[in-house]
Amino acid sequence: MDELLRFSLSPLELLVRGTAMYWFLLCIFRFVLRRDFGTAGVPDLLFVVLLGDAAQNGMIGEGHTLLDSAFLIAVLAAWNYALDFLAYHVPFVSRLTDPPALLLAKDGRLVHRNLRKEHITPDEVESALRSEGLDGLARVRRMYLEPDGKFTVLKRR
């Protein structure tokens, strides 16, 4: 029980590690990641997951130096930036990192193959239509599932 209630590192070292990693990560998020997390793609989400693991080693220690973790995070940030840059300039890379919008409804009818592909129920479609102020598919020209997970509805005139 004594081992559970003791510091394995000095509180001052934990304070310095935690503070340094907080400010380093804040700078990474501010200057590398996109401003709106609603537009985060798969590479951005992967970056955030890996970032958490890399930062944990820097804050807790476990035989890794703060510089090791900061360097690893910088490498991950560089890859994230490089993929965003390439996706903007090279259409092939964009298709790999960001899925295209998926057609869910066309001319008032559901595209069931695409609903099954994404495991979207007709109830979820109806809910999205209600949030757009529509009470059914009759006024829908096209409905898409966007790469960020949001629904877009194009109404009939």
Results as ranks from 00 to 15, higher is better:
Val140Ala: 11
Phe31Ser: 08
Val125Trp: 05
Ala78Ser: 15
Ala101Thr: 00
Arg141Ile: 00
Ala87Ile: 13
Ala55Gly: 12
Asp98Gln: 12
Thr97His: 00
Asp98Met: 14
Thr97Ile: 15
Val111Leu: 04
Arg30Glu: 11
Lys106Ser: 09
Gly61Asn: 07
His64Gly: 07
Val48Ala: 13
Glu126Lys: 03
Phe92Tyr: 12
Leu33His: 04
His119Thr: 11
Phe85Thr: 14
Gly108Phe: 01
Leu26Thr: 13
Leu51Glu: 06
Ala55Phe: 04
Val93Gln: 03
Leu86Ser: 11
Ala87Trp: 08
Val75Trp: 08
Gly63Thr: 11
Phe71Leu: 15
Asp68Cys: 06
Gly61Phe: 01
Leu102Arg: 01
Val93Asp: 04
Phe37Val: 13
Ala77Asp: 06
Gln56His: 11
His112Pro: 00
Leu46Asn: 00
Phe31His: 13
Lys117Thr: 04
Val32Ile: 15
Leu104Phe: 01
Leu50Phe: 15
Val140Gln: 08
Gln56Ile: 10
Val75Pro: 00
Asn80His: 15
Leu134Arg: 03
Val32His: 03
Tyr144Asp: 01
Leu96Met: 14
Leu46Ala: 13
Tyr81Arg: 15
Glu118Ala: 12
Gly108Ala: 09
Phe24Gln: 01
Tyr81Lys: 14
Pro100Met: 05
Arg113Glu: 06
Leu102Cys: 05
Thr65Asn: 10
Ala70Ile: 15
Tyr144Val: 01
Gly52Arg: 08
Ile73His: 02
Thr39Asp: 09
Ala78Val: 11
Val125Ile: 15
Pro100His: 04
Trp23Ile: 09
Glu126Val: 00
Phe85Cys: 10
Glu118Val: 05
